[in-house]
Design a protein around this nucleic acid. Structure first.
Lengths: 127, 127
DNA sequence: CAGGGTACTTTCCTATAGGAAACCACTATA
DNA sequence: TATAGTGGTTTCCTATAGGAAAGTACCCTG
């Protein structure tokens, strides 16, 4: 509570936790496909590198959002799945996708309007 | 839709929009204090630099989440307020703070457990 | 005439995240 | 014998975000 930013905005800690780069895609995939092995996950996230995938999975495991199961077979097999705690995020994700469906077009329109206005200003300044 | 990551996770565009660094604190402050001037905003976000504040405000304005009103007085006066579109995020923010209140302690506990397990492993490997 | 307030902009610097590519030990398969 | 597949690790490199500090143009106040 000593951090004034967190004092001003209680959402911040959740952002670091859930909405940092690659964490939501990983959770999303695990939430929709069940337990997956490392390479299966990689196939679902085609542009992620193994290094970063490992990093994010470790972080998610440490935060209790993902469960890692190591099978000491030959060859070794590792499975990742979303935890019960991770599953409590599902309604949040739904709320976000709903907002997205409802309001992203408006954002897009706002951007176009803003850019058009700026262009007009520039043309006016020149002509 | 050509980006495979966005295909895998419809939440991603919203993250770029709303949950990138400083944007939620700014929206949060504007949502709770109404229209504010540049320096007032700065006072509410004590650690933000003017450069970054300007950058984020421009971005939020472009995305239609914040309205900037310029008063051509002397000295000039500028006011920022959350837009109607920005206000549609309020229930989302509430959902996130609710989740935070309910589940952040579990995350914290998971971290401690993970760290403790790692320490134990190391001690076992050494002794 | 110095100093302060407004809303920024500009310059410079640095820390870090993240990507590319190679590597690792092991085994089954061809 | 060579190749592929397992789940990563290691090294190196770079782009960019973001911070610090100073500057800007204008005016008012003392």
């Amino acid at each position: 509570m000593s951090d004034p930013v967190e004092q001003a905005c209680p959402i911040n800690p959740v952002i670091d936790l859930v909405f940092s780069r690659w964490t939501t895609p990983i959770l999303w995939v695990l939430d929709h496909h069940g337990r997956l092995r490392f390479n299966e996950l990689q196939r679902h996230l085609p542009t992620i590198t193994p290094k970063v995938l490992t990093q994010r999975l470790r972080q998610l495991e440490r935060d209790g959002l993902v469960v890692r199961t190591y099978h000491a077979e030959i060859p070794p097999r590792v499975e990742y799945e979303i935890s019960d705690l991770g599953r409590t995020l599902t309604p949040l994700f739904k709320a976000i996708t709903d907002w997205s469906a409802a309001h992203l077009p408006a954002v897009s329109a706002a951007r176009h309007a803003y850019d058009a206005a700026r262009e007009e200003e520039e043309a006016w300044a020149q002509g």
